[in-house]
């Protein structure tokens, strides 16, 4: 669609480009341009360039970070291809036709304006980056604290695992020692379902005790293991049972096998006692 060029209307184009045309003149020019006039389009392009150069001759003002962020955020909801406003925004745009073109003076001015604009953009972006960096630093600090606590927990677990491993290895050596002997402990009336076995290594004077099916005790009670040597009960340590009623005790400085007469377990006050006072739940005689 096109229409015949009208020179009378062309005289109104400078005001149209400035945006100050009003009333009937504005409607007439709008209609004329909508009808399609290549000559007026060309004239308008040149005049738009002049208005652009006038605006470009005013000192630029960088938008505040808040206005920039608010504007860019407001369009994100309707964006198809999304990207954050970061350093890539500093990359030269292929759409640079907005700069006035012409002689060397215009080119030089455009260069200065581009440099100033780039500086302002860099300044605005730097401020934005500082905010982003601050958030990132806070996030990393929180992550570091979380990792520190996790590492401490792992170290505690590792220490416990090492201790348990050393204990298991020691027990294994006692059980597998060439001269190791075992003593079976049977459940007495107070704990008829329970049973236990003690392995004694005369070579290292150590013993390991395993029990099963013992009931959990109240907080103010404890199981206490005894060996009886030469008619005297000697404490071999106190212990608690797992959720499944099993327990194990490593015993150092066990009396010589020849003097051992029996192993026994009693229920005593928490912390244990020097001599047995409570109910005996397990008893095994050395054959």
């Amino acid at each position: 669609m096109s229409t015949k060029h009208d020179q009378r209307l062309a005289e109104l184009l400078p005001s149209y480009a400035l945006g100050v045309l009003d009333g009937e003149d504005l409607r007439t020019v709008d209609d004329h341009l909508a009808a399609g006039c290549a000559t007026c389009d060309q004239e308008l392009l040149a005049l738009s360039g002049t208005v652009e150069a006038m605006a470009g001759s005013i000192e630029p003002v960088a938008p505040s970070d808040m206005v920039r962020a608010r504007t860019l955020q407001s369009i994100e909801k309707t964006a198809v291809s999304k990207a954050s406003a970061g350093p890539e925004a500093l990359e030269p745009s292929s759409d640079s036709s907005g700069e006035p073109t012409g002689g060397p003076a215009a080119g030089l001015a455009a260069g200065w304006r581009a440099a100033i604009a780039a500086g302002l953009i860099l300044l605005a972006w730097s401020g934005w980056s500082v905010i982003d960096l601050r958030r990132e630093v806070n996030r990393l600090a929180a992550d570091r604290e979380g990792l520190r606590q996790e590492l401490a927990a792992v170290r505690t677990d590792l220490t416990a695992t090492r201790t348990e491993l050393a204990r298991t290895l020691l027990a294994s050596r006692i059980v597998s020692a060439p001269r190791s002997r075992s003593v079976l402990l049977a459940g007495l009336e107070a704990a008829p379902e329970s049973s236990a076995r003690t392995y004694v290594d005369p070579g290292s004077s150590r013993a390991v005790f395993y029990a099963s099916n013992l009931r959990p005790l109240a907080a103010d009670e404890t199981y206490q293991l005894w060996f009886i040597a030469d008619g005297t009960p000697v404490s071999a340590g106190t212990f608690a049972v797992d959720s499944d009623g099993s327990a194990s005790v490593l015993v150092e400085d066990v009396a010589t096998f020849e003097s051992l007469e029996a192993w026994a377990v009693t229920i005593e006050p928490a912390g244990g006692v020097p001599q047995p006072t409570g109910d005996m739940v397990l008893l095994g005689s050395v054959a």
Binding site: P60, S81, L90
Partner: peptide
């Protein structure tokens, strides 16, 4: 026009200072 927000960001950063300078005036 294709709703590319990165292109819009470039458009804003390139032209907003000049437009704002004029508007302040």
């Amino acid at each position: 026009v294709a709703r590319d927000s990165r292109a819009f960001t470039e458009l804003f950063d390139e032209h907003a200072p000049v437009v704002l300078g004029m508007l302040v005036k």
